[in-house]
Measured scan of single mutants.
Amino acid sequence: DETGKFLVLALYDYQEKSPREVTAKKGDILTLLNSTNKDWWKVEVNGRQGFVPAAYVKFL
């Protein structure tokens, strides 16, 4: 159920650099879980949760 969740689009490829991050490919649609940090947003992609740089994604 996606009610109340926001989707964001990956603008660039991002390769995770730590276990707390997730890899995303340009064009991926990610479920935004938390955007309270202006630099790192928590997302879910391909069943995995983790952080990506906020500058790499935008709201749909």
Rank of each mutant, 00 (worst) to 15 (best):
K42S: 05
N46V: 04
S18V: 02
K5F: 13
R48N: 05
K38Q: 10
K17P: 03
F51H: 02
Y12D: 06
V43E: 00
F51P: 00
E2M: 14
E44P: 01
G50C: 08
S35M: 14
V52A: 02
S35G: 10
R20C: 15
D28Q: 13
R20D: 11
E21S: 06
L7M: 10
Q15S: 11
V43F: 03
E21P: 04
A24I: 15
F51I: 04
G4Y: 13
A55P: 05
S35F: 12
T23L: 05
K58G: 11
E44G: 03
R48S: 05
V57T: 01
N37A: 07
W41V: 08
G47F: 05
T36W: 10
G27N: 04
K58I: 14
Q49M: 09
Y12L: 09
A55F: 09
R20K: 11
E21Q: 10
F59E: 07
G50K: 02
D13T: 07
D13M: 08
W41D: 00
L33M: 05
G50R: 01
F59G: 05
L60M: 12
K38N: 10
G47P: 01
K42T: 06
V52W: 05
F6E: 07
N37P: 03
N34I: 09
N34G: 06
Y12F: 13
G27K: 04
G47Y: 04
I29C: 08
D13E: 06
Q49K: 09
K38F: 07
A55H: 11
T36P: 03
E16M: 12
L33R: 01
G47D: 04
I29H: 03
E44V: 06
V22C: 09
K38P: 14
S18E: 07
L30S: 01
K26H: 05
F6M: 13
P53C: 13
T31L: 14
L9C: 14
L30F: 06
N34H: 06
P53V: 11
K58A: 14
L33G: 01
G50A: 03
L30N: 00
E44S: 09
K5N: 10
L11G: 01
A10N: 02
L9D: 00
Y12I: 09
T3F: 13
L30Y: 08
N46T: 03
E16Y: 05
K5H: 12
E2A: 14
L32I: 09
G4H: 13
K26C: 09
Y12S: 06
F51Q: 01
R20S: 12
K58H: 08
D1W: 14
V8E: 00
V22A: 02
N34A: 08
G4Q: 13
W40A: 00
S18M: 06
I29T: 05
D28Y: 08
K26V: 08
S18C: 12
I29S: 02
L11D: 01
F59Q: 08
N46R: 11
W41H: 01
F59K: 10
A55I: 11
V8T: 02
A55Y: 08
F51W: 14
G50N: 01
W41R: 00
Y14P: 03
A24Q: 08
V22H: 02
T23F: 05
L9Y: 12
K26W: 06
S18Y: 06
R48P: 03
T3N: 12
D39V: 14
V57K: 00
V43T: 01
L33C: 11
K42W: 15
Y14K: 01
K25S: 08
R20F: 13
V45N: 08
D39T: 13
T36S: 13
R20M: 13
S35C: 15
G27L: 04
D39I: 14
T3Y: 13
D1T: 14
S35D: 10
I29R: 03
A55K: 14
K17H: 08
A10M: 15
P53L: 12
V57F: 12
L32E: 00
K58R: 13
T23S: 15
R48L: 07
A24F: 15
K58F: 10
K58Q: 13
A10D: 00
L60E: 03
E21N: 04
Q49G: 03
P53R: 07
K38E: 10
K5E: 09
L30T: 01
W41M: 03
P53F: 15
V45M: 06
K58D: 06
D1V: 14
N46I: 04
V45T: 08
D1K: 12
R20N: 13
G27W: 06
K5Y: 13
N34T: 06
K38V: 09
D13W: 11
V8C: 10
L30M: 15
S18R: 07
N37C: 10
K25I: 07
N37V: 05
A10F: 12
T23A: 04
E44W: 07
T36G: 09
Q15G: 06
V57L: 15
N37E: 08
L7P: 00
W40M: 04
D13N: 07
V57C: 10
N46H: 09
T31S: 06
L32Y: 03
D39C: 14
V8W: 05
W41S: 00
D28I: 08
G47A: 03
L33I: 14
L60T: 05
K17R: 13
K38H: 10
A55V: 10
R48M: 07
V22Q: 04
V52K: 02
W40R: 01
P19Q: 09
E16V: 05
D1G: 14
G47S: 04
D1E: 13
F6R: 15
Y12E: 08
K38G: 09
R20I: 12
T31F: 11
S35E: 05
P19C: 12
L60S: 04
V22P: 03
Y56F: 12
E2F: 14
G47R: 02
Y56N: 05
L7C: 14
S18Q: 05
R48K: 10
E2V: 14
K26Y: 06
Q49L: 07
L11S: 02
D13I: 11
W41G: 00
A24W: 11
G27H: 04
S18I: 04
A54F: 07
K17F: 05
V8R: 01
G47W: 05
N34M: 08
P19T: 09
T31C: 13
A55S: 14
W41I: 07
E21R: 03
E16A: 15
P19D: 12
L33D: 00
V45I: 15
Y56T: 09
G50S: 01
K17E: 06
F59N: 05
K26I: 08
V57G: 00
N46Q: 08
T31V: 15
P53I: 13
K58N: 05
D28P: 03
A10L: 15
L7A: 05
V45L: 14
Y12G: 03
K42R: 10
N46P: 01
K25D: 02
V52I: 15
T23C: 09
T36Q: 12
G4A: 11
A24T: 15
Q49A: 10
G4P: 14
L60Q: 06
L9A: 03
A24M: 15
K26A: 13
V22K: 02
W40C: 06
V8D: 00
G27F: 05
D1L: 14
G47M: 04
L32F: 05
A24E: 03
V57Q: 01
D1H: 14
K25Y: 10
R20Q: 12
E44K: 04
G4D: 09
D1N: 14
Y14D: 02
N34Q: 08
E44L: 08
E16H: 08
W40T: 00
A55N: 11
F6S: 10
E2Q: 14
N37L: 08
N46L: 09
Y56H: 05
N37W: 07
T23P: 03
G27P: 03
V43C: 09
E21C: 12
K58E: 11
D13F: 10
V52M: 11
K38A: 11
Y14V: 03
F6A: 11
K42C: 15
A54W: 09
T36I: 09
D39R: 13
S35R: 12
V43Q: 00
K5D: 07
L9I: 15
T3K: 14
K5R: 13
G27M: 04
R48E: 04
T31H: 09
R20W: 15
N37K: 04
V43S: 00
K42H: 11
K17W: 05
L30A: 02
L60G: 02
A10W: 08
F51D: 02
W40D: 00
V57D: 00
K25F: 10
G50T: 02
N46G: 10
A24R: 03
Q15I: 15
K5M: 12
D13P: 06
E16W: 07
L30E: 01
R48V: 08
T3L: 12
F6Y: 12
V52N: 02
A54D: 01
